[in-house]
Deep mutational scan, measured.
Amino acid sequence: MKTQEELTEIVRDHFSDMGEIATLYVQVYESSLESLVGGVIFEDGRHYTFVYENEDLVYE
């Protein structure tokens, strides 16, 4: 089982391919040991929310 830090790094690596990240945040109250819920804001102003669970990243 991966730690929350490892899950965060996986998500950061994925989004870094889309541009320069200004902020990546995790909603700790919605996340667990198996899933990571949060959002990412890019330097150009784009903002996505995401759920990473079971090695699957869903964002909008």
Rank of each mutant, 00 (worst) to 15 (best):
M1P: 11
M1I: 12
K2A: 07
K2H: 08
T3L: 05
T3P: 05
Q4E: 09
Q4S: 06
Q4D: 04
Q4I: 13
E5Y: 10
E6L: 07
E6N: 07
L7Y: 04
L7C: 04
L7W: 04
L7R: 04
T8G: 05
T8H: 06
T8N: 05
E9W: 12
E9L: 13
I10K: 09
I10S: 05
R12G: 04
D13T: 14
H14Y: 11
H14D: 03
H14L: 13
F15T: 01
F15Y: 03
F15A: 03
S16C: 07
S16W: 07
D17A: 14
M18R: 05
M18Y: 08
G19E: 02
G19V: 02
I21C: 03
A22G: 06
A22L: 10
T23H: 11
T23A: 12
T23W: 11
L24R: 00
L24A: 02
Y25M: 04
Y25F: 05
V26K: 02
V26D: 01
V26M: 04
V26F: 06
Q27K: 15
Q27P: 03
V28E: 09
Y29W: 12
Y29R: 05
Y29K: 06
Y29G: 06
Y29H: 07
Y29S: 07
E30L: 11
S31Y: 13
S31E: 11
S32H: 12
S32T: 12
L33D: 09
L33I: 13
L33F: 10
E34G: 14
E34Y: 10
E34H: 10
L36I: 12
V37T: 14
V37I: 12
G38W: 03
G38M: 02
G39K: 06
G39D: 06
G39C: 14
G39R: 09
V40W: 01
V40F: 02
V40Y: 01
I41C: 07
I41M: 09
I41E: 05
E43K: 15
D44T: 03
D44H: 02
G45I: 01
H47F: 07
H47Y: 07
H47R: 08
Y48G: 01
Y48I: 07
Y48V: 05
T49N: 06
T49D: 03
V51S: 10
V51K: 14
Y52F: 10
E53K: 15
E53C: 11
E53L: 15
N54W: 07
N54V: 05
E55A: 12
E55R: 09
E55S: 11
E55L: 09
D56M: 15
D56V: 15
D56Q: 13
L57F: 07
L57C: 04
L57R: 01
L57Q: 01
V58L: 13
V58K: 15
Y59S: 05
Y59W: 11
E60P: 03
E60T: 15
E60D: 08
